[in-house]
């Protein structure tokens, strides 16, 4: 197992951790979004989806543990990288311009990541760790989004998520070595589309819900 520790501790290994866990989150986002879209089918469809999901039982718990583990890895390795990169240039430039490589997403990765962490904690406290025996999930959700502050918060968070994945998506491919001059433009485009889907897909939900009732 020594070899694994060596790989993971190396710079590229750390990137690998970020890339793999990041890609899993992308997968999770797709699934989550697909599930959430049932809300457009109305209250019953949404509740039915929630019920079906929870009927998975142990499988769901397993997935949750998996996601939690990935999150811990993504967060802690990200924090290590952030700190390491901060110290790699002890003396800053008097004047530094970007030359065209950097994007909004890439430049803000650690910060958007941190905001998303806060948001996820908040999100879980609101919709996950709540008593669902007396209210259906739909009721919880629609009650929440009656408050404009919630809507604004959620929409903003989704924009932040979009920015984060706009860099994270293609970046994961690059890190895994899946860069080919022929396909990279496609991958980058896919990343952009994905971030739009995430931003718009999730972002419209709170607005829609707030208008439902």
């Amino acid at each position: 197992m020594n070899w694994l520790i060596n790989v993971v501790r190396s710079s590229i290994g750390k990137k690998l951790c970020m890339a793999l866990t990041g890609m899993c989150f992308c997968g999770f986002l797709i699934a989550h979004l697909a599930g959430n879209l049932t809300i457009y089918g109305g209250k019953d469809a949404f509740n039915a989806y929630a019920q079906r999901l929870h009927s998975l039982g142990a499988l769901l718990t397993l997935a949750e543990i998996g996601l939690l583990t990935f999150a811990l890895i993504h967060i802690s390795v990200g924090a290590i990288l952030f700190y390491g990169n901060l110290t790699a240039r002890p003396q800053r430039y008097e004047m530094k311009k970007n030359t065209g490589g950097r994007s909004l997403g890439s430049a803000t990765m650690p910060y958007t990541g941190f905001l998303l962490l806060l948001f996820i904690v908040f999100h879980l406290m609101n919709f996950h760790f709540v008593d669902k025996t007396r209210q259906s999930i739909f009721e919880i959700v629609s009650a929440a989004f009656q408050q404009p502050l919630y809507v604004v918060l959620y929409v903003t968070a989704m924009l932040v998520a979009a920015v984060h994945v706009s860099h994270g998506f293609w970046s994961a491919f690059q890190t895994l070595g899946l860069n080919h001059p022929k396909y990279m433009p496609l991958i980058r485009l896919a990343g952009l589309v994905f971030s739009l889907v995430v931003g718009a897909g999730f972002g419209f939900l709170p607005i829609y819900i707030s208008r439902m009732t």
Binding site: K14, K15, N85, A88, R89, R102, A107, M109
Partner: peptide
């Protein structure tokens, strides 16, 4: 050697 870690910013190839 104390270099930072790549976060795929692409500034390197630009300069």
């Amino acid at each position: 050697l104390g270099f930072g870690n790549c976060t795929n910013e692409r500034e390197c190839e630009a300069v």
